[in-house]
Design a protein around this nucleic acid. Structure first.
Lengths: 246, 246
DNA sequence: TATTTTAACTTGTAAACACAAGTTAAAATT
DNA sequence: AATTTTAACTTGTGTTTACAAGTTAAAATA
C-alpha cells in the first residue's frame, strides 16, 4: 500500500535537543556573540537557559570541542576558540571558511549541470551512484584577484531538489549543503600530489609550465548514509600557503 | 612544605573506565581480533564483560567512531571499519600507521639530540618552549627501498625522560609517545606547499631538480595542555599517492 | 507458500542523581 | 601583611532509569 505516501510523506524529523543546543552555541560563536577567549556560560547555566539537563548540554559541548569551536578546562570552564579558521582545505569545511570571505571571489567556469559519470577522479563509484548521475561544476577561486584554486565538484544527483539552480557564487558548498539539505560532512578521504602545471592550469593560473601545483582529490562522507560527494582541487600555493587543521 | 615531594610524588593517575574500554577495544581491532565488517558485541554485552554501565560503554564507542575504528548503525550495532589506514600523513596518526609496516623502512639521518630552537619551521614558539630546547631528529623513509618521505621532527624537551634514548627505527612516533608518555595527539595545524626539489631533497630522493615535491609543515597538539610538537615532511608523491582521512 | 505481524533485539535520546577533582577568591589564621 | 584554609564555583566520571526508534528473524496470518 501507498497510504503513507498519500498522506503526504510529511514525517517531520524532530531534531534532538543536544543538536539544537549545539547549533545555537555554534551560531553564537560564528556571529561573535561569544568571542575568542570568552568563557561560555557554565554547564549548569546552559541547562537552565536551554531547559535541559547536564548530559544533554555536555553532548553539545563535546561536539563543539570536536569541531574546534571551544576547549574545556576542568575547574575553569569552556573557552571559546572562535570559528575554526582553516578548517578548510584539508579538513572539515570549505575554502570559504578557510580563508574568510574578505578577498575571496569565485568564478563559475562550468555552471552546475547534470552529467553521467563512471568515476570520480581517483575514487570508484557504486552502481547506484553511477545510475543517478552527478551534478557537475567547475569553479575558479581568486584571492585579491590572484587565481589560487581551481576546483571540480561532483555531487551524486540523488534527492537534492533544485541544487543545480542554487547560486554557488561566493558561497561555501559545505554551508549550502548543510542549510538546504541538512547534509553534514562527517569525514572523508583525500589524496595529495604535487604536479607541474598542465596547460589548462597554466591558462587559469597564469603561470609557467614549471610551476609546482598541489592536486587534491577528495571524497567527502556525510551524515546521510552511503551519500558522498567528490572534488578535485588544484592549488597554486605559491603566494598563499595551504593551511588546515585536523 | 615539600612533604608531598618527600612522599615520592607517586600519585598514580587512575585512568577513567571509558578510556580503558576504549583502549581494550582499539587493541582488539588493531590486532584483528575484531575484523573489518564484524559487529562488535552489543553495548549491553560490553557492559557485562567490562562491568560498567551503558553511558560508559557509549563514551568509549563514541571515541572509536571519532577515530574511525568503527561506524554505528541504529538498530544494527557497531561495525568495525578496521585500523584507520591512511589516517596518517594528513590526519591523526603517523606514516607507519598510514602505510602499514610491511614495506616501510626508516633510516635515521640525524639521531635524536637536544638542540636549542627559536622557531619550528613556519610555526612560532612560546618563551617556555624556547627555554627548554627541543629534541631534534631527521629520518628518511623508504617504501620498497624507494625514498618517499624525508621528515624533520622537533619535540619540546619538557618532561620526556629518556626520549632521546628510545629507538625510532621502524616505529610510529605517535604510538611511541602514546605508550611511553600517555601523549595523545588531539589535533593540530598543517601547511602544505608544492615545491621543486632542493639539492638536499634531490640527493636523498635521487630525483632531478624539476621534480615537484610536497612540503608539509605540521604542528601537533596533544592531550597535555600547552604541549605541542612539530614536524616538516617532504614527500615524493610521484609513485605513491599521499592518502589520508579526515 | 507468500505475506504480514509481532517480538526481541539493536542503538539513540534524555533525565536525575552522586561524587571526584581542578580553580578561584574570599575568609580565617599566622 | 603574608600565608593558609575554606567554600563555592567549575568540569569529569559514573550509575540508574526510561523510553524512542531502527533492524531482524521468528511466528502468525492470509
Amino acid at each position: 500500500m501507498a497510504s503513507e505516501l498519500k498522506k503526504g510523506n510529511m514525517k517531520t524529523i524532530r531534531k534532538p535537543q543536544h543538536s539544537l543546543v549545539y547549533e545555537s552555541l555554534r551560531k553564537h560563536i560564528s556571529e561573535k556573540i561569544y568571542r575568542e577567549g570568552d568563557l561560555l556560560p557554565s554547564e549548569n547555566e546552559l541547562c537552565a537557559t536551554h531547559g535541559v539537563t547536564r548530559p544533554t548540554i555536555r553532548k553539545a559541548l563535546d561536539k563543539l570541542v570536536n569541531d574546534g569551536f571551544i576547549v574545556k578546562r576542568k575547574g575553569k570552564g569552556s573557552i571559546v576558540k572562535g570559528t575554526p579558521m582553516g578548517v578548510g582545505i584539508l579538513s572539515l569545511g570549505g575554502t570559504t571558511a578557510a580563508l574568510g570571505m574578505e578577498n575571496l571571489t569565485t568564478l563559475i567556469i562550468v555552471k552546475p549541470e547534470v552529467r553521467p559519470w563512471n568515476k570520480a577522479f581517483s575514487f570508484e563509484l557504486t552502481d547506484r551512484e553511477k545510475e543517478f548521475g552527478c551534478i557537475y561544476l567547475e569553479r575558479l577561486r581568486l584571492i585579491n584577484n590572484d587565481p589560487v584554486f581551481y576546483d571540480i565538484t561532483m555531487i551524486p544527483n540523488i534527492n537534492l531538489p533544485r541544487l543545480s539552480a542554487l547560486s554557488f557564487e561566493n558561497k561555501s558548498l559545505f554551508d549550502l549543503l548543510r542549510k538546504h539539505y541538512q547534509l553534514e560532512v562527517t569525514g572523508g578521504e583525500q589524496r595529495i600530489q604535487a604536479i607541474l602545471a598542465t596547460e589548462k592550469i597554466q591558462d587559469n593560473f597564469k603561470v609557467s609550465k614549471d610551476q609546482p601545483i598541489i592536486q587534491l582529490d577528495r571524497k567527502m562522507d556525510t551524515n546521510r548514509p552511503d551519500f558522498s560527494f567528490y572534488s578535485q582541487v588544484f592549488c597554486n600555493a605559491d603566494k598563499y600557503a595551504l593551511i588546515g587543521t585536523f
